[in-house]
Amino acid sequence: MAPTTLGTSTSMSLAGLRARIAPTPGYLDAATGGLPLRATTDALHAALDEWAAGRAFPTTYDVAVAASRDAYARIAGVDVDRVAIAAQASPLVGLVAAALPDGARVVVPDGDFTSVTYPFLAHADRGVRVDAVPLERLADAVADGCDAVATSLVQSRDGRVVDLAAVRAAAADVGALRVVDVTQAAGWYPLDPASHGPEITVCSAYKWLCAPRGVAFLTTTPEADALLRPLAAGWYAGADRWASVYGTDMRLAPGARRFDTSPAWLAWIGAVPALEAFAQVDVAEVHAHDVGLADGLRARLGLPPAGSAIVSLPDDDAGTVRARLTAAGLRVAGRGGGVRLAFHVWNDASDVERVAAALAA
């Protein structure tokens, strides 16, 4: 069993969360984009009406950002002053890349999502070297010595889960900065916050957390704060936002909020119901449900369990397997030359049966 989330109070059952999402049989693509809660679509419709009527105010959106930040802090198991907000994950990883010295060595898993790798590769002109290694050798490569290690906790392509404890231990031994993208984990995989050392996590919340696209988070440790420069600092990063809109007297917020970027307002209105729901549900129950369905499918196909909510199946160049699943009314994704199926809270055993039947045909 994965580690439990720290600092999260739960008061909603999995059934209660499922009831808040419109049934969508055959949707097996949470790894591409989550389905919205009914309350999210209601909130967005109401916000659009307010905007159209000329009754939208920035201070109202600030309340949504604050509520979303608080909910994500509970999901991540960290204090709220350790959370910064942004629109996407890659600019947050870019803060780390810009902080590395010339000639730094960065270790990443081979085939990881490019929001994790490209920000470091963009610094090749100043000698930053990115070494991609097989996921199962990541901790060993870190132990050989590096300035930073960057990895997705759950791999986007095939759902493999990194041995984060081993990576953390190796990074601590060599004094490396750790960057962990939890985009494909937060919402179904229990997050275990770093207990010590410089660590940064990033998350885009539009997948397993079911928020609108344009909602992302950064978590830092005090040691990491000391290494990073708020390169996109603007009024929203100010200690007093509304006193930071003009001039050169820069007084940034303490803690991680100094890395805030100005929010895309409407997205955060829709994020609040989703993030608050996932902050209340027992993530261990979600994990057991999602992984149970995924491993149940793997068993039906004669495959060993993998302990992931994502199932990756091989496909031919013509995409025959994906076409067969699509023809059966199933929403899946083609990734890395295979077919990716992602099971989440709205799925049930009938989806496993539909996949097995489509493949058997």
Score class of each variant (00 low, 15 high):
Ala271Leu: 09
Phe259Leu: 10
Leu266Asn: 03
Val283Trp: 07
Asp290Val: 09
Trp242Asn: 07
Val245Gln: 11
Ala232Trp: 01
Leu293Thr: 02
Ala284Glu: 12
Glu223His: 15
Pro222Ile: 05
Val245Met: 13
Gly234Val: 08
Phe259Tyr: 12
Ala232Arg: 12
Val311Ala: 09
Ala233Glu: 03
Asp316Pro: 15
Ile310Pro: 03
Gly255Tyr: 07
Ile310Thr: 11
Glu285Trp: 00
Tyr236Lys: 01
Val281Pro: 10
Glu276Gly: 02
Met250Asn: 15
Arg258Glu: 04
Ile269Leu: 12
Leu252Pro: 04
Asp317Val: 13
Leu266Pro: 07
His289Met: 01
Gly292Asp: 14
Arg257Ala: 15
Asp317Phe: 13
Ala279Gln: 02
Ala237Trp: 03
Ala232Ile: 03
Trp242Met: 04
Ala309Pro: 06
Gly292Trp: 14
Pro304Lys: 10
Arg251Thr: 15
Ala274Gln: 08
Gly292Gln: 15
Val291Ser: 12
Ala253Met: 04
Ala253Gly: 05
Pro222Thr: 10
Trp242Asp: 11
Asp240Val: 07
Gln280Ile: 03
Glu276Met: 04
Glu285Ala: 15
Ala288Trp: 05
Gly234His: 11
Leu293Ile: 06
Ile269Ser: 10
Phe259Arg: 05
Asp260Lys: 06
Leu293His: 02
Leu301Ile: 11
Pro263Ala: 13
Val281Phe: 05
Gly238Arg: 02
Pro304Ala: 15
Glu285Leu: 03
Ala271Tyr: 08
Gly302Gln: 01
Asp282Leu: 00
Ser312Ile: 04
Val311Lys: 11
Gln280Thr: 14
Asp240Arg: 02
Val311Asn: 11
Ala309Phe: 04
Ala279Thr: 00
Leu252Ser: 11
Pro263Asp: 08
Pro314Thr: 10
His289Gln: 06
Gly270Phe: 03
Val245Glu: 12
Tyr246Arg: 12
Gly296Phe: 05
Glu285Thr: 09
Ala306Leu: 03
Phe278Thr: 07
Pro273Gly: 04
Pro273Thr: 00
Thr261Ser: 14
Pro254Ala: 12
Tyr246His: 12
Ala243Thr: 01
Ala243Tyr: 01
Ala267Leu: 03
Ala306Cys: 02
Val291Met: 14
Asp315Met: 06
Thr248Val: 12
Gly270Asn: 07
Ala239Phe: 04
Asp290Lys: 02
Thr221Val: 12
